[in-house]
Design a protein around this nucleic acid. Structure first.
Lengths: 141, 141
DNA sequence: GGTAATTCGGACAATTTAGTCTGATATGGG
DNA sequence: CCCATATCAGACTAAATTGTCCGAATTACC
Protein backbone atom coordinates (compact mmCIF):
# COMPACT_ATOMS: atom_id res chain seq x y z
CA UNK A 1 0.00 0.00 0.00
CA UNK A 2 2.93 2.27 0.69
CA UNK A 3 6.50 1.53 -0.31
CA UNK A 4 9.17 0.86 2.26
CA UNK A 5 11.04 3.98 1.27
CA UNK A 6 7.94 6.09 1.88
CA UNK A 7 7.47 4.43 5.24
CA UNK A 8 11.09 5.20 6.12
CA UNK A 9 10.61 8.83 5.15
CA UNK A 10 7.61 9.07 7.44
CA UNK A 11 9.43 7.41 10.30
CA UNK A 12 12.39 9.70 9.90
CA UNK A 13 10.20 12.80 9.76
CA UNK A 14 8.24 11.75 12.84
CA UNK A 15 11.50 11.10 14.64
CA UNK A 16 12.74 14.58 13.77
CA UNK A 17 9.41 16.07 14.81
CA UNK A 18 9.68 14.40 18.22
CA UNK A 19 13.12 15.86 18.80
CA UNK A 20 12.24 19.16 17.18
CA UNK A 21 14.06 22.04 18.79
CA UNK A 22 16.82 24.55 18.18
CA UNK A 23 19.50 21.89 17.62
CA UNK A 24 20.11 19.23 15.01
CA UNK A 25 19.82 15.45 15.23
CA UNK A 26 22.60 13.21 14.00
CA UNK A 27 21.62 10.78 11.30
CA UNK A 28 23.29 7.85 13.11
CA UNK A 29 21.16 8.58 16.14
CA UNK A 30 18.03 8.64 14.01
CA UNK A 31 19.01 5.32 12.44
CA UNK A 32 19.31 3.78 15.88
CA UNK A 33 16.00 5.22 17.06
CA UNK A 34 14.02 4.28 13.96
CA UNK A 35 15.70 1.03 12.95
CA UNK A 36 16.26 2.27 9.42
CA UNK A 37 19.54 1.15 7.80
CA UNK A 38 21.90 4.04 8.45
CA UNK A 39 23.20 4.54 4.92
CA UNK A 40 19.79 4.26 3.39
CA UNK A 41 18.40 6.74 5.87
CA UNK A 42 21.09 9.18 4.91
CA UNK A 43 19.94 8.96 1.30
CA UNK A 44 16.35 9.60 2.30
CA UNK A 45 17.27 12.55 4.48
CA UNK A 46 19.32 13.99 1.70
CA UNK A 47 16.34 13.77 -0.63
CA UNK A 48 14.11 15.40 1.97
CA UNK A 49 16.74 18.11 2.14
CA UNK A 50 16.53 18.79 -1.59
CA UNK A 51 12.75 19.06 -1.20
CA UNK A 52 13.10 21.64 1.53
CA UNK A 53 11.51 19.49 4.24
CA UNK A 54 14.68 19.18 6.32
CA UNK A 55 17.91 21.13 6.51
CA UNK A 56 21.31 19.98 7.65
CA UNK A 57 24.46 21.16 9.33
CA UNK A 58 27.69 19.59 8.19
CA UNK A 59 30.85 18.88 10.10
CA UNK A 60 31.64 17.67 13.54
CA UNK A 61 28.50 18.84 15.31
CA UNK A 62 26.24 18.45 12.31
CA UNK A 63 22.91 16.78 11.82
CA UNK A 64 19.41 17.25 10.49
CA UNK A 65 16.44 19.33 11.51
CA UNK A 66 12.94 20.03 10.25
CA UNK A 67 12.78 23.31 8.37
CA UNK A 68 9.21 24.10 9.41
CA UNK A 69 7.24 23.47 12.55
CA UNK A 70 5.88 19.90 12.78
CA UNK A 71 2.35 21.30 12.80
CA UNK A 72 3.02 22.80 9.35
CA UNK A 73 4.30 19.65 7.66
CA UNK A 74 1.79 17.17 6.26
CA UNK A 75 2.47 13.48 5.74
CA UNK A 76 1.73 13.99 2.04
CA UNK A 77 4.67 16.39 1.76
CA UNK A 78 7.02 13.91 3.37
CA UNK A 79 5.96 11.05 1.16
CA UNK A 80 5.64 12.97 -2.11
CA UNK A 81 9.33 12.90 -3.13
CA UNK A 82 9.32 9.12 -3.08
CA UNK A 83 6.18 8.46 -5.09
CA UNK A 84 6.52 7.12 -8.61
CA UNK A 85 5.24 10.27 -10.34
CA UNK A 86 3.45 8.80 -13.27
CA UNK A 87 1.12 6.34 -11.65
CA UNK A 88 -0.63 8.72 -9.32
CA UNK A 89 -4.26 8.02 -10.11
CA UNK A 90 -4.18 5.09 -12.42
CA UNK A 91 -7.19 2.89 -13.04
CA UNK A 92 -7.57 -0.16 -10.84
CA UNK A 93 -8.26 -2.20 -13.95
CA UNK A 94 -5.43 -0.61 -15.90
CA UNK A 95 -7.51 1.19 -18.48
CA UNK A 96 -5.58 3.87 -20.34
CA UNK A 97 -8.43 6.30 -19.75
CA UNK A 98 -10.60 6.11 -16.68
CA UNK A 99 -12.36 9.26 -15.62
CA UNK A 100 -15.68 10.32 -14.19
CA UNK A 101 -16.97 10.80 -17.73
CA UNK A 102 -15.54 7.52 -18.97
CA UNK A 103 -15.29 5.28 -15.93
CA UNK A 104 -14.37 1.63 -15.62
CA UNK A 105 -16.66 -0.60 -13.60
CA UNK A 106 -14.64 -0.10 -10.44
CA UNK A 107 -14.01 3.61 -10.91
CA UNK A 108 -16.43 5.05 -8.40
CA UNK A 109 -15.52 2.81 -5.49
CA UNK A 110 -11.81 3.02 -6.14
CA UNK A 111 -11.91 6.77 -6.47
CA UNK A 112 -13.48 7.06 -3.04
CA UNK A 113 -10.68 5.08 -1.46
CA UNK A 114 -7.95 6.95 -3.27
CA UNK A 115 -9.60 10.20 -2.25
CA UNK A 116 -9.79 9.16 1.40
CA UNK A 117 -6.12 8.20 1.38
CA UNK A 118 -4.95 11.44 -0.16
CA UNK A 119 -7.22 13.36 2.15
CA UNK A 120 -5.70 11.66 5.17
CA UNK A 121 -2.13 12.26 4.10
CA UNK A 122 -2.79 15.88 3.23
CA UNK A 123 -4.68 16.71 6.38
CA UNK A 124 -2.48 14.96 8.91
CA UNK A 125 0.59 16.80 10.14
CA UNK A 126 3.66 15.48 11.89
CA UNK A 127 2.41 17.20 15.01
CA UNK A 128 -0.89 15.31 14.78
CA UNK A 129 1.08 12.09 14.74
CA UNK A 130 3.38 12.75 17.66
CA UNK A 131 0.54 14.18 19.72
CA UNK A 132 -1.46 10.99 19.29
CA UNK A 133 1.47 8.63 19.72
CA UNK A 134 2.01 6.96 23.08
CA UNK A 135 5.64 6.37 22.08
CA UNK A 136 6.32 10.06 22.31
CA UNK A 137 7.56 9.83 25.87
CA UNK A 138 9.60 6.70 25.47
CA UNK A 139 13.23 6.60 24.63
CA UNK A 140 14.00 5.23 21.19
CA UNK A 141 16.51 2.67 22.45
CA UNK B 1 -1.33 1.13 -4.21
CA UNK B 2 -1.88 -2.18 -5.92
CA UNK B 3 0.85 -4.14 -7.64
CA UNK B 4 0.87 -4.62 -11.37
CA UNK B 5 0.39 -8.34 -10.99
CA UNK B 6 -2.72 -7.78 -8.90
CA UNK B 7 -4.03 -5.36 -11.49
CA UNK B 8 -3.42 -7.95 -14.20
CA UNK B 9 -5.29 -10.58 -12.20
CA UNK B 10 -8.26 -8.27 -11.90
CA UNK B 11 -8.21 -7.42 -15.59
CA UNK B 12 -8.03 -11.07 -16.52
CA UNK B 13 -10.87 -12.01 -14.19
CA UNK B 14 -13.06 -9.19 -15.48
CA UNK B 15 -12.30 -10.29 -19.02
CA UNK B 16 -13.35 -13.84 -18.20
CA UNK B 17 -16.46 -12.57 -16.46
CA UNK B 18 -17.46 -10.61 -19.57
CA UNK B 19 -17.15 -13.67 -21.75
CA UNK B 20 -18.58 -15.97 -19.12
CA UNK B 21 -20.56 -18.81 -20.62
CA UNK B 22 -20.44 -22.53 -21.23
CA UNK B 23 -17.20 -22.44 -23.22
CA UNK B 24 -13.63 -21.53 -22.43
CA UNK B 25 -11.54 -18.52 -23.48
CA UNK B 26 -8.08 -18.96 -24.94
CA UNK B 27 -5.30 -17.26 -23.04
CA UNK B 28 -3.87 -15.71 -26.22
CA UNK B 29 -7.23 -14.09 -26.88
CA UNK B 30 -7.37 -12.73 -23.36
CA UNK B 31 -3.87 -11.34 -23.73
CA UNK B 32 -4.93 -9.49 -26.85
CA UNK B 33 -8.12 -8.16 -25.24
CA UNK B 34 -6.47 -7.04 -22.00
CA UNK B 35 -3.05 -5.97 -23.21
CA UNK B 36 -1.30 -8.16 -20.65
CA UNK B 37 1.93 -9.84 -21.84
CA UNK B 38 0.78 -13.27 -23.01
CA UNK B 39 3.30 -15.38 -21.12
CA UNK B 40 2.89 -13.46 -17.94
CA UNK B 41 -0.87 -13.72 -18.19
CA UNK B 42 -0.55 -17.46 -18.52
CA UNK B 43 1.36 -17.56 -15.24
CA UNK B 44 -1.31 -15.50 -13.52
CA UNK B 45 -4.12 -17.67 -14.89
CA UNK B 46 -2.31 -20.73 -13.74
CA UNK B 47 -2.06 -19.32 -10.23
CA UNK B 48 -5.75 -18.42 -10.27
CA UNK B 49 -6.35 -22.01 -11.30
CA UNK B 50 -4.51 -23.36 -8.27
CA UNK B 51 -6.65 -21.09 -6.11
CA UNK B 52 -9.83 -22.48 -7.60
CA UNK B 53 -10.94 -19.19 -9.17
CA UNK B 54 -10.60 -20.39 -12.76
CA UNK B 55 -10.44 -23.81 -14.36
CA UNK B 56 -8.86 -24.79 -17.65
CA UNK B 57 -9.20 -27.19 -20.54
CA UNK B 58 -6.03 -28.36 -22.17
CA UNK B 59 -5.37 -29.32 -25.72
CA UNK B 60 -6.41 -28.02 -29.07
CA UNK B 61 -9.68 -26.39 -28.06
CA UNK B 62 -8.59 -25.54 -24.55
CA UNK B 63 -8.76 -22.35 -22.56
CA UNK B 64 -9.85 -20.85 -19.27
CA UNK B 65 -13.15 -20.23 -17.59
CA UNK B 66 -14.42 -18.89 -14.27
CA UNK B 67 -15.35 -21.69 -11.91
CA UNK B 68 -18.13 -19.77 -10.21
CA UNK B 69 -20.64 -17.24 -11.42
CA UNK B 70 -19.18 -13.70 -11.72
CA UNK B 71 -21.70 -12.51 -9.13
CA UNK B 72 -20.13 -14.93 -6.64
CA UNK B 73 -16.52 -13.88 -7.09
CA UNK B 74 -15.21 -10.87 -5.17
CA UNK B 75 -12.28 -8.71 -6.22
CA UNK B 76 -10.61 -9.63 -2.93
CA UNK B 77 -10.57 -13.30 -3.92
CA UNK B 78 -8.98 -12.53 -7.25
CA UNK B 79 -6.27 -10.36 -5.76
CA UNK B 80 -5.54 -12.44 -2.67
CA UNK B 81 -3.17 -15.00 -4.26
CA UNK B 82 -0.84 -12.19 -5.33
CA UNK B 83 -0.61 -10.28 -2.07
CA UNK B 84 2.61 -10.46 -0.08
CA UNK B 85 1.15 -12.44 2.83
CA UNK B 86 3.13 -11.01 5.67
CA UNK B 87 2.53 -7.32 5.24
CA UNK B 88 -1.23 -7.41 5.32
CA UNK B 89 -1.93 -4.84 7.98
CA UNK B 90 1.38 -3.38 8.82
CA UNK B 91 1.78 -0.07 10.58
CA UNK B 92 2.15 3.01 8.39
CA UNK B 93 5.09 4.06 10.55
CA UNK B 94 6.60 0.58 10.60
CA UNK B 95 6.15 -0.13 14.28
CA UNK B 96 6.48 -3.81 15.13
CA UNK B 97 3.29 -3.63 17.14
CA UNK B 98 0.49 -1.28 16.24
CA UNK B 99 -2.99 -2.17 17.42
CA UNK B 100 -6.04 -0.46 18.80
CA UNK B 101 -4.70 -1.01 22.30
CA UNK B 102 -1.20 0.15 21.41
CA UNK B 103 -1.61 2.47 18.45
CA UNK B 104 0.91 4.64 16.68
CA UNK B 105 0.01 8.26 16.03
CA UNK B 106 -1.38 7.49 12.61
CA UNK B 107 -3.12 4.27 13.54
CA UNK B 108 -6.71 5.43 13.62
CA UNK B 109 -6.73 7.30 10.35
CA UNK B 110 -4.75 4.64 8.54
CA UNK B 111 -6.94 1.87 9.85
CA UNK B 112 -10.00 3.59 8.43
CA UNK B 113 -8.48 3.71 4.99
CA UNK B 114 -7.27 0.15 5.08
CA UNK B 115 -10.70 -0.90 6.26
CA UNK B 116 -12.44 0.95 3.45
CA UNK B 117 -10.15 -0.65 0.90
CA UNK B 118 -10.68 -4.17 2.17
CA UNK B 119 -14.38 -3.53 2.44
CA UNK B 120 -14.53 -2.41 -1.17
CA UNK B 121 -12.59 -5.39 -2.48
CA UNK B 122 -14.61 -7.86 -0.43
CA UNK B 123 -18.00 -6.44 -1.30
CA UNK B 124 -17.50 -5.87 -5.00
CA UNK B 125 -18.01 -8.82 -7.33
CA UNK B 126 -16.88 -9.30 -10.89
CA UNK B 127 -20.49 -8.94 -11.90
CA UNK B 128 -20.70 -5.55 -10.18
CA UNK B 129 -17.75 -4.43 -12.27
CA UNK B 130 -18.95 -5.59 -15.66
CA UNK B 131 -22.45 -4.31 -15.00
CA UNK B 132 -21.12 -0.83 -14.31
CA UNK B 133 -18.55 -0.84 -17.09
CA UNK B 134 -19.39 0.93 -20.36
CA UNK B 135 -16.74 -1.21 -22.07
CA UNK B 136 -18.88 -4.27 -21.63
CA UNK B 137 -20.42 -3.99 -25.08
CA UNK B 138 -17.26 -3.14 -26.96
CA UNK B 139 -15.06 -5.65 -28.66
CA UNK B 140 -11.68 -6.03 -27.04
CA UNK B 141 -9.69 -5.56 -30.23
C1' DG C 1 -1.32 -42.33 -35.69
C1' DG C 2 0.36 -37.66 -36.89
C1' DT C 3 -0.06 -32.80 -36.65
C1' DA C 4 -1.56 -28.41 -35.06
C1' DA C 5 -3.14 -25.83 -31.25
C1' DT C 6 -3.41 -25.29 -26.62
C1' DT C 7 -2.26 -25.29 -21.48
C1' DC C 8 1.53 -26.42 -18.06
C1' DG C 9 5.52 -25.20 -15.63
C1' DG C 10 9.95 -23.98 -14.71
C1' DA C 11 14.27 -21.65 -16.11
C1' DC C 12 15.92 -17.45 -17.38
C1' DA C 13 16.35 -12.19 -18.24
C1' DA C 14 15.16 -7.35 -17.35
C1' DT C 15 13.63 -3.88 -14.46
C1' DT C 16 12.67 -1.65 -10.24
C1' DT C 17 13.38 -1.16 -5.43
C1' DA C 18 16.15 -1.57 -1.37
C1' DG C 19 20.37 -1.45 0.83
C1' DT C 20 25.75 -1.09 1.15
C1' DC C 21 30.18 0.87 0.54
C1' DT C 22 33.49 4.24 -0.25
C1' DG C 23 35.40 8.52 -0.72
C1' DA C 24 34.84 13.60 -0.78
C1' DT C 25 33.71 17.70 1.80
C1' DA C 26 32.81 20.51 5.79
C1' DT C 27 33.28 21.87 10.68
C1' DG C 28 34.63 22.15 15.56
C1' DG C 29 38.21 21.39 18.89
C1' DG C 30 42.93 20.10 20.46
C1' DC D 1 47.45 22.70 11.50
C1' DC D 2 45.58 18.32 12.17
C1' DC D 3 42.32 15.12 13.53
C1' DA D 4 37.84 13.31 14.75
C1' DT D 5 33.26 13.35 13.38
C1' DA D 6 29.62 14.79 10.71
C1' DT D 7 27.00 15.30 6.13
C1' DC D 8 27.11 14.73 0.93
C1' DA D 9 26.88 12.02 -3.13
C1' DG D 10 27.35 8.68 -6.27
C1' DA D 11 28.82 3.97 -7.51
C1' DC D 12 27.98 -0.52 -6.49
C1' DT D 13 25.42 -4.85 -4.79
C1' DA D 14 21.28 -7.50 -3.42
C1' DA D 15 16.60 -8.68 -3.58
C1' DA D 16 12.03 -8.46 -5.25
C1' DT D 17 9.06 -7.79 -8.99
C1' DT D 18 7.93 -8.13 -13.66
C1' DG D 19 8.38 -10.13 -18.07
C1' DT D 20 10.31 -13.74 -21.68
C1' DC D 21 11.42 -18.15 -23.49
C1' DC D 22 11.15 -22.79 -24.41
C1' DG D 23 10.15 -27.59 -23.93
C1' DA D 24 6.77 -30.98 -22.29
C1' DA D 25 2.03 -32.68 -21.80
C1' DT D 26 -2.66 -32.76 -23.58
C1' DT D 27 -6.42 -32.76 -26.78
C1' DA D 28 -9.02 -32.15 -31.36
C1' DC D 29 -9.05 -33.00 -35.89
C1' DC D 30 -7.45 -35.14 -40.15
Amino acid sequence: MVSKTEEYALRAAVCLARLHGPGVVRSAEMARATGIPANYLSKILHQLGREGIVSSERGRSGGFRLVRDPADVTLAEVVAPFEPQVERNRCLLGRPECSDGNPCGAHLGWKKIRGATIDFLENTTLYDVIRADPDRNRDGS
